[in-house]
């Protein structure tokens, strides 16, 4: 009995794995379901195909002609209807997760982000700004170019661009949305574990597209609030 309860705790804890970031969880839901379906379909098709290839070989003088079969209506109906059901299920399951991925929870902090060739401008609710400029030599950013993010708090990003189209990809949260000049687009994310994470540009934007990154410094909320209130907007602006 004691062993069983221990086992239950163990299984339970592994199931209730700590969520590092939202909305990656919803992305993973869809991804896992697709992967399982895809592997099953692959095996269901590839195994018979390989088996037929090996079994029904041409042998000169012994087996030179295949059987005269031109089709089978019942079978063809089956493999039309079943795929329709499978793809509609996948699209609908993805739809359910998509709704959660797109709609930020109530009370999310609004962060205005403007992309430009090549860098990102972050504007916090109190007007404080951080600029992350591209660095052709490396993927590290100086301290003043890091955008601070409170750990465990949802952040809603309002995106636009100053010149060409960019895309704001939050690597740990597996979410991206284009920054389009003349339009406002949005995404949200929440990172629970403090640390430094990449934002990468995911829409081709010229020479330094590959170095158009920003570092998100995720810190506990109290530290974030201190950081946010230090330095007036004028001082941090370049």
């Amino acid at each position: 009995m004691r062993f069983l309860s221990l086992l239950l705790v163990f299984v339970g804890s592994s199931l209730a794995q700590e969520v590092v970031a939202y909305p990656k969880v919803y992305w993973e839901n869809s991804y896992k379901v697709w992967l399982a379906v895809a592997v099953i379909i692959y095996l269901v098709v590839a195994i018979p195909a390989l088996y037929f290839m090996l079994k029904y070989r041409y042998r000169k003088g012994v087996h030179e002609e295949g059987e005269h079969i031109e089709g089978n209506t019942a079978l063809e109906v089956v493999w039309t209807v079943i795929p329709i059901i499978i793809v509609l299920f996948l699209a609908t399951y993805s739809f359910a997760n998509f709704v959660k991925q797109r709609n930020a929870p109530e009370g999310a902090m609004e962060l205005k982000v403007v992309g430009f060739m090549w860098g990102w401008e972050f504007e916090y609710p109190n007007g404080k700004k951080v600029y992350a400029f591209f660095n052709p030599q490396s993927y590290t950013a100086p301290e003043e170019q890091k955008a601070y993010i409170p750990a465990g708090k949802p952040v809603k990003v309002i995106l636009t661009s100053r010149d060409v189209i960019h895309s704001f990809f939050v690597l740990p949260a597996m979410i991206t949305e284009d920054a389009v000049p003349g339009r406002l687009t949005h995404l949200w994310f929440q990172i629970n574990k403090p640390g430094e994470y990449y934002v990468l540009c995911r829409e081709f934007c010229g020479t330094w597209h590959s170095h158009m990154f920003a570092v998100l410094k995720v810190v506990p909320e109290a530290e974030f609030n201190t950081w946010l209130s230090t330095g007036t907007p004028q001082q941090t602006q370049q």
Binding site: P23, K24, Y26, W27, N29, S30, Y31, W34, V37, A38, I41, Y42, V45, A46, A49, V87, L90, A91, Y93, S94, F95, A96, N97, F98, Q101, R102, S167, F169, M174, I175, T176, E177, L187, R202, E203
Partner: peptide
């Protein structure tokens, strides 16, 4: 044909809009 099968099945997540938000581009 067997490679097209992989190509076709890996096309589905690009169509499933929820997965595409993470793997687009």
């Amino acid at each position: 044909i067997l490679m097209f099968l992989i190509g076709g099945l890996t096309g589905i997540p690009n169509a499933m809009v929820s997965i595409d938000l993470g793997i687009s581009d």
